[in-house]
């Protein structure tokens, strides 16, 4: 039984379902309902959590509860899966997620120094977000662009052959974009 947020201690499925549906956007609810028609609905758990993270940027407790209810899998399993895979985040992150590739090729070509420079410029460590909520910093597994090492990925945009002195310009590119949005 869930004791969290809006989902009260209740046996009334209609009520639980109602709260759960409210916690998730429509397309995800529809997707879960589609999954329930399949032979092995629980096997789609990872996909559902991916959709949730895509929408919210992270997996919150309320959303995980809702997924557990609607997909009819125990909350223990949902949280077990969410904590097992590197891809899932349980805390909100900045608007721009900086992921520095720490694959071998990047490592031997100086990814460590790139990381140091990002930390210095942003004043945050791995897994943290800047105070303005703009940037988060993470290390990532090989992005498969070893020929361009060292590689940095910022929200699906890939930057190749990054050296520490290129970093201020890269960050500026995003802060400028932000201030443009603001002035508009």
């Amino acid at each position: 039984m869930c004791t969290h947020n809006n989902i009260q201690n209740t046996d009334n499925w209609k009520e639980v379902e109602g709260f759960a549906k409210k916690a998730l956007p429509e397309h995800i609810v529809a997707f879960i309902e589609e999954c329930r028609q399949d032979a092995n609905p629980e096997s789609k758990l990872i996909k559902v959590l991916q959709l949730v993270q895509e929408h919210f940027g992270y997996l919150g407790r309320t959303q995980m509860d809702a997924v557990a209810q609607l997909l009819q899998v125990p909350m223990a399993k949902v949280s077990g899966v969410a904590t097992f895979y590197h891809f899932f985040r349980l805390v909100p992150r900045g608007k721009y997620l900086i992921r520095v590739c720490l694959g071998t090729a990047c490592y031997v070509k100086g990814a460590e120094r790139v990381v140091d420079k990002f930390k210095e410029e942003l004043g945050i460590r791995f897994g943290e977000t800047t105070k303005d909520g703009l940037f988060s910093l993470e290390g990532t597994r090989c992005l498969g662009c070893c020929g361009l090492a060292p590689v940095v990925e910022i929200n699906e945009e890939i930057f190749g052959q990054v050296t520490p002195d290129k970093i201020p310009a890269i960050l500026e590119h995003f802060t400028e974009k932000e201030s443009e949005i603001k002035t508009q």
């Binding site: 694959g103 071998t104 090729a105 490592y107 597994r141 090989c142 498969g144 662009c145 070893c146």
Partner: peptide
């Protein structure tokens, strides 16, 4: 393809 430094599958 999780091996760091391998990207043939992606390609």
């Amino acid at each position: 393809e999780g091996d760091p430094g391998a990207f043939m599958d992606r390609s």
